[in-house]
């Protein structure tokens, strides 16, 4: 019975769950990567000599981290669609309901949440890079963006990776909240299957196992990345 439900054949929900799993990966990876941009910018801004930049970074991280994730998603989902509808009404005179792309909203909202947490991790990591490493680069006349991209960030990365792994896992799980927008990721797929078959436990258990598989697999990838970013740090002399 259970196996038939999970099969890929007729009456089985296997392909729905598989597509949901792929959607989850797509949303999570895009959101996390997208979130690193405001995250890194906020981290740099929080160290800026300009007070308004520091304030901007503080507002972003405080605001986003202080509101429940689900609420952030709702605000973005309904906020963006009303905004677009208003713009369309004003410019084209069309007053009907326009639904925004659930994937885009998902990536935008989860990405900004992810970025707010990444910002804290990256800020701490940047602070851990010894001042002399940057001074040596400045003393050669390297431009600021070269110093940031080739010296500061690679060195901060090795400190940031364990923390970023944490943010990534949270981001991956936060994608389940996008199910409220109707995007068919794992959570939404399991939900549908559970409703139709009246076998909620089976499908939610399968969903849980899929999330576990993803978090476990990605943790291994992060472990490898940590080894790579720590190259050159071996204490022993050859």
């Amino acid at each position: 019975m259970t196996l038939t439900l999970l099969s890929f054949g007729p009456g089985g929900w296997g392909s729905t769950l598989l597509i949901g799993a792929l959607m989850t990966i797509a949303v999570a990876v895009t959101s996390f990567a997208f979130g690193l941009v405001p995250g890194a910018l906020a981290a740099m801004a929080s160290r800026s000599p300009h007070a308004w930049l520091r304030a901007l970074a503080l507002v972003y991280t405080t605001l986003v981290r202080g509101i429940p994730e689900l609420l952030v998603i709702y605000l973005f989902f309904f906020g963006t669609s009303s905004m677009i509808m208003a713009i369309v009404r004003l410019s084209f005179g069309y007053g009907g309901y326009i639904e925004v792309n659930a994937f885009a909203i998902g990536v935008l909202s989860v990405g900004l949440i992810s970025g707010a947490y990444s910002a804290e991790v990256i800020r701490g990591a940047i602070a851990s890079v010894p001042k002399g490493q940057v001074e040596a680069a400045m003393a050669l006349g390297l431009k600021r963006w070269v110093i940031v991209s080739r010296i500061l960030f690679p060195q901060a990365l090795r400190v940031a990776l364990p923390g970023l792994n944490n943010v990534w896992q949270t981001t991956l799980k936060d994608t389940s909240l996008i199910s409220v927008t109707g995007l068919a990721e794992i959570m939404r797929s399991a939900n549908m299957a559970a409703g139709v078959t009246h076998e909620p436990f089976t499908f939610y258990l399968v969903a849980a196992l899929i999330y576990l598989l993803f978090t476990w697999g990605s943790a291994r990838l992060f472990a490898r990345a940590e080894i790579f970013s720590g190259r050159g740090l071996k204490e022993a002399r050859p």
Binding site: Q133, A136, A137, M138, A139, G141, R144, Q155, L233
Partner: peptide
Amino acid sequence: RKQVERLRSQVGMVFQAFNLWDHRT
């Protein structure tokens, strides 16, 4: 900033703590 970068590119500096970038060969 451009002038400072040009000055620095023509005046080398050697630090007490070496300050080699340890993630690079």
